[in-house]
Design a protein around this nucleic acid. Sequence first.
DNA 1: GTCTATATAACGATAGAC
DNA 2: GTCTATCGTTATATAGAC
Lengths: 203, 203
Amino acid sequence: MEEKQETEELIFEAARRVFQRDGYYGARMQDIADEADINKSMLHYYFRSKDQLFQNVYQKEMGKFLPVIMELLNSEQPLDQKVENIIDAYYGHWNSNPKLIPFIIVEMNLNPERFRDFIKGKKPDFPTRFDEQVKEAVKKGEIMPIEPEQLLVSIVGSTIFPFIGKTMVSTLFDFDEDSYQQFMADRKEQLPTFILNAINYKQ
Amino acid sequence: MEEKQETEELIFEAARRVFQRDGYYGARMQDIADEADINKSMLHYYFRSKDQLFQNVYQKEMGKFLPVIMELLNSEQPLDQKVENIIDAYYGHWNSNPKLIPFIIVEMNLNPERFRDFIKGKKPDFPTRFDEQVKEAVKKGEIMPIEPEQLLVSIVGSTIFPFIGKTMVSTLFDFDEDSYQQFMADRKEQLPTFILNAINYKQ
DNA sequence: GTCTATATAACGATAGAC
DNA sequence: GTCTATCGTTATATAGAC
């Protein structure tokens, strides 16, 4: 039977879930096998080692992220729409896979070298069109003086923090799952205005 | 010889560094022993198990954080000064221990239950004076309509993201250590204005 | 391709001499 | 209190039958 493709994907998906939940060192090959409801030795048959299985997951999951943000930054939309689209993009990812951003942050901090190697392999080209647009807008007086890098970090930070800090936010504000979801839905609507106000953007 | 206190602190400090670098599962007792330049069995003599050693580090390091932010939120300063002080407080922590915030974020995501137990033991009282102040300011029209929780998440997110995303920021923007430090110093100065603009604060 | 059984190594933890 | 030696477990990984 030609089950190869199917089984490999089954293992990959199980590995993704377990690695995203427990991190590289916390994950156990047996847990991944259980999650996939398959024999443990199959993991080695298809991916040889834990490290290679992880690399597969890492590359694919990280790969979902960078191209999207780079394309948004380099698009020819006006600045205000761009801000809104970046925020929308993050909230889109969150709906399809809420553990993706925490996974990236956790692994980046526990293994910075792996992250740098990944980025080096992709060679994203900074500065982007976004940087030019911000500088132009500052020169024209359309927004307050600010470096593009500072603005981008503020946008990304205020956008993704409630994903990576979900436990903190929910615990301190005493949110159940529904309250958290409502909080995030409100946030998606309000954040673009918040950011554009911050730089005194005049439409 | 009464070396007990000294050795215990030596081990604790080494454990703190290794746990903050590698996380709970990534850390090895042997690595901690090497870091402290001491025999591995001493770790068990003073702290019994890896889990108890970690709990000591966790409780102490987490404990540095919550009281500071709660006191700031509950103080009687005006809102604009409060925003500035929160940002200053984070940057103060960063100077004394740049790995503290990443450590909290990583461990909170890999072990949410441990985090919730910690918070439950501390019982911080929300809502705070900050929440009242935001609601008053909205009512008086001093700032745009915004929920205190949303504002707080935006402040904290834009403030701490460059700590937990240092590797990302440095890699993408091609920063060396000096450039990163300069970026953070600039950020500390600019962020209060950025936030107060965002809510249309009129002084 | 899939299973069972097992090799091999690493890790946390302890016993016991000093 | 500090060391060496070692135990017991658990993890990754492989060998080999089917």
